[in-house]
């Protein structure tokens, strides 16, 4: 499972990198090229977002990537096939990220067993709090997959402990209020927040939302275990093309 992989990685490096892509955006062919570039650039794990028509936790950049992928005809079953292919051909762990309706319509237990067969390691479902996720959590457990849960700056310390008790793999800490893509203030408050998260769980901590560059990642070293780059690589790819991705990732650490 992920926790050991991450802890091993942390022996070699002071922070790990997780990146995010929207499957089929701009095309599956380019998704593959982006993954190749990211793996070459040294990412440690990746989130593969299955596009959904109502991505309420995502900001304008990822929202528009979801919509363009769907407008281009991307289907859930194509995403499942593609994810199986990449997670069997690249040497890093892959996670699914999507909204609960995608799992529900596919069949939650079917979705989870296909994930397991395809060598995916876990999933992030931002609109599925554990209170609503009984079936999902049980299926993930049965298949030894990690359900990643989210902590936010508004989460009470009591609730942090509860979330930690049902999570495995790592905890995804969102850096601030708001949706993906907006700016984050890398400040003493963020450091205090990460300290509180650390007190709530022995799991590795990922920090995401607004992480853009090496300065941000340097700040996070020693405070978080995984830096999550989401919107920024989509922006980069849109502005400078897939060719810019590998160097960008390599220069982050």
């Amino acid at each position: 499972m992920l926790e050991n992989y991450l802890k091993e990685g942390l022996k070699e490096r002071d922070i790990l990198l997780m990146t995010h892509i929207v499957l089929g955006y701009p095309t599956f062919e380019q998704s593959l090229q982006i993954i190749e570039a990211m793996v070459k650039g040294g990412v440690d794990l990746m989130e593969l977002q299955i596009p959904f028509s109502e991505p309420i936790a995502d900001g304008p950049v990822i929202l528009s990537a979801n919509q363009k992928a769907l407008a281009g005809g991307v289907t859930v079953s194509q995403c499942m096939d593609f994810a199986a292919k990449v997670s069997q051909s690249f040497p890093i762990p892959f996670l699914f990220m999507s909204y609960y309706n995608i799992l529900l319509k596919y069949g939650v237990s079917r979705f989870v067993s296909v994930m397991a067969e395809s060598n995916l390691k876990g999933a992030i479902v931002p609109d599925l709090p554990p209170e609503e996720g009984q079936e999902y959590m049980e299926a993930m457990k049965d298949h030894k997959l990690d359900p990643i849960f989210i902590i936010s700056p508004t989460t009470s310390s009591e609730r942090m402990k509860y979330l930690a008790s049902v999570a495995s793999g790592f905890m995804y800490c969102v850096a601030r209020k708001g949706v993906t893509g907006a700016n984050t203030d890398f400040s003493i408050q963020l450091q205090n927040y990460l300290n509180n998260c650390r007190k709530a769980t022995p799991l590795p901590l990922a920090l995401g939302f607004g992480v853009k560059n090496k300065t941000d990642i340097d700040f996070l070293k020693g405070k978080a275990d995984i830096a999550v780059i989401g919107t920024q690589t989509i922006r980069l790819m849109e502005q400078e093309g897939v060719g810019a991705v590998e160097g960008f990732i390599r220069d982050l650490r």
Partner: peptide, 23 residues
């Protein structure tokens, strides 16, 4: 949340964590 607001399987609160305290 004490009451999850279910009407025989319909309803619930499928919220991003950030809104949990607000709800």
């Amino acid at each position: 949340m004490l009451n999850r607001g279910y009407y025989q399987g319909f309803g619930g609160a499928f919220l991003p964590e950030i809104l949990y305290a607000t709800f």
